[in-house]
Each structure stands twice: as structure tokens, then as C-alpha cells.
Design a protein around this nucleic acid. Structure first.
Lengths: 231, 231
DNA sequence: CAATGAAGTTGAACACGTTCAAAAGGAGGA
DNA sequence: TCCTCCTTTTGAACGTGTTCAACTTCATTG
């Protein structure tokens, strides 16, 4: 990875490589695009592509990062319009889906990675910053809304909502129905359910259930932290 | 793929390649083992490995198949001992975990694939036969047990239990805690919950909930069938 | 006993992602 | 002008999974 780059020229080159890569990924797909294609499209030698990006995957990582950066203002804007939790949750997810729509094919190639040790996995250490920022969207959707979240779930609920969104995204990525109408359906139906569950979740009566869920999640997330520490 | 093979010699060679591959996968891991290593270990030329197996992945597929075949009698035996649903469910899952234990590292390399289009994915068309056989285990666990399953869930419940088991397996595969005690904990805690949920699920009062769940599952599985048809 | 042809075997060759030593460029100073 | 040093650029080379045309083996047949 090149260190802090100042010179105009090299920034230009890096951008050209990145843009060429993305254009090719979109047109032909990730696996079908070779690093030689990318370099040639960007009018540089093969080695130059590797001078600016550690690997083919690193280009994708840059893409993840840019996506996340560009989503922030969009989500912020959307969240300023309503206090209804359901609408806020829907907005966060819909913005992401819409934004990703042109890259659906590319994302399908990437969603392959579930292994938390794979850099591109949504569960990896390398994507942690992006994941945290993403989870924060859901925290904000909750905080400014009309639902009250009981303390013992405050930590976990954003993560659960993030997981819900990842599942939806995964379904969408592989959804071959015309215009992905199945995803739309699944989204609508599950959104109501999730919203209701979130509302119910803070009922005093459900305290023992919350405790059980919290225990489970600590087991699961605790394990992740351990493996990250060991990695 | 070679057609029906009868000659002893070739069967011997195939087995030698398969065994060498598995030994190396276990010792060094999947990615770290090359086809040249396998061929050399089996004392054949590189091409011979490809004569018997279409690809490196195909060796893994053969491993999946053998695993499934060998599990059948073990599960059958275990299911003959009790009618308690909880114990039956636990037995099916525990047998699988125990059986897979020596291959945990190999399975971690494989669990990478979530893309239903990837041949090795547990959701792919290529693994359908194995998946169906596997799902059948849970159907049997239900059928011979002390729980009554309402008709509208009879179709889906085995699939849901299979999914539960896949999640557990996934967790196990990446569980770095000593002797995977976290998985054990997760197993115990979730088993109770799942068992209770299955019991509750047939309460007459919950009919509308069942209907909603069934609708969702049909949406999800229906989509899969569509994409398979298009594939 | 050849001759035939299917089954089995070989290793060179290909395209890929990636590495790396070497060359080229260019900014700043003597 | 020339030297120095860092950044940028180059393309050959490596190891990988995979393909393939050529070769060998060997049971069956005329």
C-alpha cells in the first residue's frame, strides 16, 4: 500500500485503475475480469495495478469503503424525515439496496465470503470499521425513533438489525426474480414482523426472554472477539 | 467423470488419489494443498488426478457424499434409542459434529461458499441430494418423536431444523475456543429453545403465526427453485 | 497371434493472481 | 549541468488449478 499520496499524478493513476476495475467488474463480473484486463483498461502495466492495490480483493475493499462513505449523508438525510421506527428502519435498508442496485452482480461474486478470516467477509477484522459504521446506522434508526429499547438489549439490537439487513441483502443478491420482486415482498413482510418484535421486546414481562437472548449473543459475539484476538 | 468403473486397478487408483487428497487436506488445509501434491502423494501424474476427479472441488464433493453415506446408519441407530424429541434432535446434530470433528479444519475452508451457484455451497443444486438426505434426518427425528407437528408446518419444519444445524455447524467450524466449548454451550442453550419452539408451534392459538412463517418460507424456497430452474 | 480400440496415464501448456528486481521519472540541491 | 534519492512504472517469472493431445496398457476379437 502506498503511503500518504500527495502528488496529483499518482492519485490520478490510482483513480483510473479503480474506475477501470469497477467498470469491468460491473460489465463482466468479478471472476471474469483479470488484473491484466484492469491494467490494460487503465493504460498501465500489470505491476502498476499492484503498486496501488495490494490485491484484486483490495480493490473491492476500496469499493466497500467508498460505498460506506457515500451512504452516510444519504442515510442521515433520510433519518431526518420521520420518527416512526418502521419507516426509519425501512429507509436505512432501502437506501442501501438502491445504492447497491447497479452493483448487484458484483456483490453476488463477493457475498461468496462468509469465512470471518477472509478479508472481504462482512464478518472479518478487515471489514470491522465498515461493519461498525453500518451497524451505527441502525443504532441511529432506533435512537431517534418512537420505540423504547430496554437497556439490556440496547447493545445488541443494532447488531441484530444489521444481521437482518445482511440476510435481506444476501437474499437480494441471489434473487433472480424479475426486478427482484421477491426481495421486495420479503422485505415488506419481514419489516412488519421485525418492527413488532422490536416493540414487544421491551415489554417488562419479557425480561427473562431478553436475558436469554442477551446471553446467547454474548456467547456468539464473545467468540468472535476471541478469534480476532488470536488472529 | 469416468463412467461406471469396474476394473479393480482403476478403482484402486481412484481411491489412492482420494485418500492422499484427504490426508493432505487434513494435515495442511485445503488451500495449502496443491493438485500436484495430491498427485505426487498418490504416485500418479497430475493429469491422472484430473482423470478421476473433474476438479479439486470434485474431490471435496466426493468427501461430502461419503460423509453423508456413512452418517445414515449412525443416525438410524441413534434414533432407535429414544422418542424424546429433544434427545433425537440432539443426537442427529451431535453425531454429525462428532463425525466431522477430525475434518474441522477442512470444513472451515469449505464453509467459505455460501453462493448457491457455487457447486460446493450447501445451498447449491449440486449438493441438493446430500442436503435432502440430510434434511430427512430431521424429518425422521420429528416423526418418531413425542411431539405433534401441525400439518401446515410439516413441510417446513425439517428444513428449519436443518438450517438450525447448519448455523451451529458454521459456528463450530470457526469456533476457536478450546475444544470448541463455546459451540457446546451454544448447542445446549439453543437446543432447549428450539425444542420449546417446536412444541409451542403446534398450539392452535398460533395458527396465524404459522401461516405467516409458511408464507415467508415459501417465498424463500420458491425463489430458490426459480433460480435453479433458470440455472 | 496380431490388431483394434477403449481405458488409463502422462507432462507440457495455458491463464490466472501475485511478486519482484530492475528501470524510468522527477524534484531538490551542489 | 549533474548527482541523489524517492516515487512510480515495467514486464518477466512463479505457483496455482485446469486442459489436452499424445502416449501406453491391455482385454477382446478376428
Amino acid at each position: 500500500m502506498p503511503k500518504a499520496i500527495k502528488t496529483k499524478k499518482s492519485e490520478e493513476t490510482r483513480r483510473r485503475i479503480f474506475d477501470s476495475a469497477l467498470a469491468l467488474f460491473r460489465k463482466r463480473g468479478f471472476d471474469e475480469t483479470t488484473m491484466r484486463d484492469i491494467a490494460s483498461e487503465a493504460d498501465v502495466a500489470l505491476g502498476a495495478a499492484y503498486y496501488y492495490f495490494d490485491s484484486k480483493d483490495a480493490i473491492v475493499m476500496a469499493f466497500y469503503q467508498r460505498t460506506q462513505d457515500e451512504l452516510v449523508p444519504l442515510v442521515t438525510e433520510a433519518l431526518s424525515h420521520t420518527h416512526s421506527f418502521k419507516q426509519r428502519l425501512a429507509a436505512v435498508i432501502r437506501i442501501k439496496l438502491d445504492y447497491c442496485a447497479p452493483n448487484r452482480r458484483l456483490m453476488a461474486a463477493l457475498a461468496t465470503h462468509i469465512d470471518p478470516r477472509h478479508p472481504l467477509s462482512p464478518f472479518s477484522e478487515q471489514t470491522r470499521a465498515i461493519r461498525d459504521a453500518d451497524t451505527h446506522f441502525f443504532q441511529r434508526a432506533l435512537e431517534g425513533s418512537d420505540v423504547r429499547v430496554s437497556e439490556d438489549l440496547a447493545l445488541h439490537l443494532p447488531r441484530l438489525l444489521w444481521l437482518y439487513q445482511m440476510g435481506l441483502l444476501l437474499f437480494w443478491v441471489y434473487d433472480r426474480s424479475p426486478r427482484q420482486w421477491r426481495t421486495t415482498q420479503l422485505f415488506e413482510k419481514t419489516l412488519s414482523i421485525v418492527t413488532k418484535l422490536v416493540r414487544f421486546s421491551s415489554f417488562p414481562l419479557l425480561r427473562p426472554v431478553r436475558k436469554t437472548v442477551a446471553e446467547l449473543l454474548e456467547l456468539i459475539y464473545g467468540s468472535q472477539e476471541t478469534s480476532e484476538a488470536l488472529a
